[in-house]
Amino acid sequence: MIQKNKLMLWISLGAVLLSLVIHILGSLFHLFPKHLATMTMEHTHSGHYLYLLNTLLFIPIILMIFCVYLYARKQKDHPFIPLITAVLWTFSIISIIASLW
């Protein structure tokens, strides 16, 4: 179980980093083309849209920090680590898709 949790944490870190890279490429460099409806929404509701994207980015980061804390400080085979990593992956994928859209 300890080896499984360690592997899950490394894969989760990769998902969080991928989400961060996609976020940076999409927001700072405007690398991904936006649809006309999203471009209009960006100009009219840019504050709300960016707030939502940043929130979706920070949820996986916070979950990752919590999961590493449980692994390092509490127990390496803590029963919540698999659950938190599953939720972390879900929010990482949601964050990636939202930053591409």
Score class of each variant (00 low, 15 high):
L36E: 11
N5A: 00
R73P: 02
N5V: 00
L63R: 02
I2V: 06
L52M: 15
F80D: 11
L7N: 06
K74V: 08
N5R: 03
L25M: 14
F58V: 15
H48K: 09
T38D: 07
G47S: 15
I65R: 09
M39S: 12
L18W: 06
P60A: 08
K74D: 15
L56P: 03
L25V: 11
H30Q: 05
S95W: 02
L56V: 07
I94D: 01
L52P: 03
F80M: 11
I94H: 07
P60D: 11
F29L: 13
W10T: 06
F91T: 08
L7A: 15
I84T: 12
W10V: 04
K6M: 06
T90K: 10
M1H: 08
L31T: 15
A15M: 14
L52R: 12
L31G: 01
A15E: 00
M41S: 13
T44Q: 08
L20Y: 02
S19T: 11
R73D: 09
T38R: 09
C67H: 03
P60N: 11
M8P: 00
T90Y: 05
I59M: 14
H30K: 14
F91N: 02
C67L: 06
W89E: 06
T40V: 14
G47W: 12
C67T: 15
T40Y: 08
P33T: 02
S99W: 12
S27I: 05
F32S: 09
H35D: 14
F32A: 01
K34C: 03
L53V: 04
P82M: 01
I65Y: 13
L52Y: 05
S19L: 02
D77P: 02
T55A: 10
I65T: 15
M64N: 05
L9F: 03
M41E: 15
W89V: 06
I81H: 00
E42C: 13
I2Y: 00
Y69N: 14
L83C: 04
